[in-house]
Design a protein around this nucleic acid. Sequence first.
DNA 1: TCCGTTCTCAACCATCTGGTTGAACACGAA
DNA 2: TTCGTGTTCAACCAGATGGTTGAGAACGGA
Lengths: 126, 126
Amino acid sequence: MDDDQLSRVFAALAEPTRRDIVARLTVGDATVGQLAAPYDVSVQAVSKHLKVLEDAGLVSRSRDAQRRPCHLEAEVFDLMTKWIERYRRRAEERYRRLDTVLAEMDDEVDGATTTNRSNPRERGAP
Amino acid sequence: MDDDQLSRVFAALAEPTRRDIVARLTVGDATVGQLAAPYDVSVQAVSKHLKVLEDAGLVSRSRDAQRRPCHLEAEVFDLMTKWIERYRRRAEERYRRLDTVLAEMDDEVDGATTTNRSNPRERGAP
DNA sequence: TCCGTTCTCAACCATCTGGTTGAACACGAA
DNA sequence: TTCGTGTTCAACCAGATGGTTGAGAACGGA
């Protein structure tokens, strides 16, 4: 499923448990055991979740004796934010243009059949 | 894998093809056939992708004869943005606090007992 | 050294996912 | 009505995913 990092980040956060872990890590670093405690899944399962988060670049781990403290790498959020904002902006811009076009159309035509009014600047012919 | 809508949205965007489709839809509504054209997968595969996007609330479809024009529902982006911003803000805040604490500690102690101080100022506070 | 703790690796299992193909449905045009 | 186009449904397949259990690795402390 994953190709680039963006895919891995989205995929990593598509899991309530993992989002929960990320949320927990915003409070402070934590060991695997501490992170696993609230859930009734095995420690191994949480370890796997952490591997997913680590592969996505969302979490880094250091070493402290047997423990592996997990640390949130919040800059990765920017990757998503940038992608989202880029297209949201584009979409909003389009709606603005669309509104203008529709206003003009309403002046000239009394658009009875408006099923297709969603793509005004795109010729329908395939 | 999916529970809530947030999970579905993240999962939907964890796929390059689907992100591509979303990007394409910011330009304007499009039919399944139009969306499928650029890819060398079957129309059915794209139809499935659109179902995933629709279940996530990212896309809505109307009807135009045999065609099912797809429309981007960009407000759903806010769901993600809100989640991301919430925790990023919290994380940044924490780094700020951590820096303060560490500065104080550097004054008094030569860091012995602190399990957590792994590598605090790697990603310097903004 | 051996012991207990923390964590990961390996094997396994059930389910989900993204792709395929072929058939069927929905509709406009002839 | 019949035909062609656009789309979805159904069955299937290979591979990923999230969970389990059991064994083992890494380490501090006795």
